[in-house]
Write a protein that binds this DNA or RNA. Structure first.
Lengths: 201, 201
DNA sequence: CCTTCGCGATGACATTTGTCATCCTGGCCT
DNA sequence: AGGCCAGGATGACAAATGTCATCGCGAAGG
């Protein structure tokens, strides 16, 4: 039996995926989690063969959880299953030691197949996404540029961001300006959208 | 047997939900769709007892599909199952004739139960959301304010929006300004976020 | 050792944005 | 007929935003 731990924050989707995997005769869901933190804990106690993680989760996101599981339980293969096929996500997932990266709009039948392939030692990566990630290149934003852009994403004014990050307003403006240029955007909002679409941020 | 048509754009989630419902002895999934348009067509040909619709779908969203199904196939009860519990969504779904509104982070077991209750003639509405919708009140934005705010949501400049909507720049600024005030926001970006969070837009 | 680069800051500047008062139009309601 | 309101427009003005040049500092890296 292939023992799987499932992490996904939307309970109904989590339950549905569990029932989907339950249909497979050789797969068994031995644990569920709603946050990344919970996922790490469950994997530590259940010691599954596979950890199937969503990325968008509260408390700790799936990529951070992947890194932690990869470090603490090397015997457990980590698979990422996510809504948004963003090149930056794929890159970061691979760096975190994930063995697979797939998106939720591929067919349901592919999931079990991917699990078996991963267990056989293969790496499974959505081919469309792999191409996109390669052509997109790495994240051009510096650490600070990401921080500032991220802090401005919710509509905060420059003053707010400066306060929150303990920076001068002028400095915030400068980082924002360079982020705008690096993303080829025309203003802050476009820069945020572009960065999010690429999985930088 | 309760005959259900399932509309959801993410194939894997759709398949997983189908398998979840397949576990119920008295429920049968007789059709699936990935867009609202497809959902209407499938319901017209399959004549199910229940149409279970996601809201965020391409081509035609779930609310528009709900209205169309309610009009064309009154015997079919429409249920909305969505990621985002936004008060405005609930309100619009009810106006479109939906019999149920639930969010994907309630437990998986609730889904089949809700289907049975709807078929028994009940209306099923997430209680937390119902309270939020009542306290939030109706959408304060006028038709035009929504258009303009929606067109500005992707980071377009005022000039872009004016061009796209065939308005003068000054007019766009005025509508944007009043939308900002009605949403109690401090700038365009906050206004967009607030409006989206409420399900106006 | 010298260069480069990231971080942080300042000051100046042109644009964009948000706000307000005001005007015109055509429905709609009484 | 008169009043009211939404849509559309203009012009003026203050505030926020985006850009640029320039400076200092310290950590790599040749």
């Amino acid at each position: 039996m292939i023992r799987v731990v499932l992490a996904e924050d939307q309970a109904m989707v989590r339950g549905a995926l569990a029932s989907l995997l339950g249909l497979e005769p050789d797969i068994e869901v031995v644990g569920e989690a709603a946050t990344g933190q919970e996922a790490v804990a469950v994997v530590l106690s259940a010691r599954p063969d596979i950890a199937l993680l969503d990325i968008e989760m509260p408390v700790m996101d799936g990529i951070a959880a992947a890194a932690e599981i990869f470090r603490a339980v090397p015997a457990c293969r980590v698979m990422i299953l996510t809504t948004f096929g963003r090149p930056g996500y794929l890159r970061r997932a691979m760096e975190a030691g994930a063995s697979a990266f797939m998106v939720k709009d591929s067919p349901a039948r592919d999931l079990a197949a991917a699990i078996r392939r991963v267990l056989a030692g293969e790496r499974v990566i959505d081919p469309v996404l792999a191409a996109a990630a390669l052509s997109a290149g790495p994240n051009p934003l510096s650490r600070r540029e990401r921080d500032v852009l991220g802090a401005a994403a919710d509509g905060s004014t420059i003053g707010d961001v400066a306060l929150r990050l303990h920076l001068s307003e002028g400095t915030v403006r400068n980082y924002l300006s360079s982020a705008i240029q690096k993303t080829h955007a025309r203003n802050r909002i476009e820069a945020v959208r572009r960065a999010q679409a690429q999985g930088w941020l």
